[in-house]
């Protein structure tokens, strides 16, 4: 009876997994199909058409996807660095320091967590364009440097939760030894919340990698295009869509996210649940 039950569980989970993953498998298969084969129901083509990848990679006149990849990494690495520095500093203030209106500001920060971006996007755009930031990556770097941007308040919240669980005796001991607050932050807190910082880095990477709206708004010369924008250009510029190449390139565009996901699965689940449960 028990064996019967557990195999029933396995079969149902296997079916669910298969349904969920089928479009992905199909994606991989279709990226190797020629345009004629595209509408056949076979998952994989008889002869893989690797040219989709090589031709897709150089399909944009004057630019290759290598260029777009490097652009995207330039954008993301800057955002990652600024985000981690700023959010950990602010989280330390909320978790450890004692200053007037602390709880008030914390509450405000939680409210901004739920604020739809549409309410601020128009004035932000006006501001950034007045400052000549259009077509640079500053509209991404600066908000993250100010602990905002995509996911900012969430990261602060996450780090506060982790920092609160670090025993206070540690910073008191350091204080007696004459350590400054910055020293406590830098030498004690940061090494201890490293797992949380990794979680923040992962989400920051994924969410910014996926963000299309912001990139479309602020970047308009091909020279600075990210992968997302290059893909959109690819769809728009072709009369009849070369599906094989398009799917091949879009598959390439998710490779970094997938690699990170498999390398850091544990952090992934922890971060997501911490957001909901520890609060």
């Amino acid at each position: 009876m028990k064996l019967y039950k557990s195999s029933f569980n396995h079969i149902s989970l296997l079916i669910v997994s298969l349904i969920m993953m089928y479009p992905i498998f199909w994606w991989v298969g279709a990226s190797l199909k020629t345009n004629e084969e595209m509408s056949s129901a076979n998952l994989f083509p008889k002869v893989p058409h690797w040219a989709n990848f090589s031709e897709g990679w150089v399909s944009t006149p004057n630019f290759t996807f290598t260029h777009f990849y490097l652009n995207t990494f330039e954008l993301i690495l800057g955002v990652l660095f600024t985000s981690i520095v700023a959010c950990s500093l602010v989280a330390f203030a909320f978790a450890r320091l004692d200053f007037p209106l602390r709880n008030f500001w914390f509450a405000i920060m939680l409210v901004t967590l739920m604020l739809p971006t549409q309410v601020t996007v128009v004035p932000q755009y006006v501001m950034f364009s007045k400052w000549g930031w259009i077509n640079t990556y500053l509209p991404f770097y600066i908000p993250h440097l100010l602990a905002g941007g995509i996911g900012g308040p969430f990261f602060i919240y996450l780090l506060v939760q982790f920092m609160r669980s670090v025993p206070k005796e540690l910073d008191e001991a350091a204080k007696i030894d004459g350590c400054s607050w910055f020293g406590i932050y830098w030498r004690i807190m940061l090494p201890l919340v490293k797992p949380a910082l990794v979680t923040v880095a992962i989400y920051c990477f994924l969410w910014n990698w996926d963000d299309f709206f912001g990139q479309m708004l602020y970047i308009n010369s091909i020279n600075h295009y990210t992968i997302n924008l290059a893909l959109k250009l690819f769809i728009d510029s072709q009369g009849s869509v070369p599906w094989g190449q398009l799917l091949a390139m879009s598959l390439c565009s998710i490779v970094p996210s997938v690699v990170i996901f498999f390398l850091a699965q544990r952090h992934f689940v922890e971060g997501m649940s911490a957001g909901a449960l520890k609060g």
Partner: peptide, 17 residues
């Protein structure tokens, strides 16, 4: 397996698919 589709979230790639 079940989480995988959510990973690629709102990216333009998944919209193309």
């Amino acid at each position: 397996m079940v989480y995988f589709p959510s990973l690629i979230g709102t990216s333009i790639a998944v919209s193309i698919l």
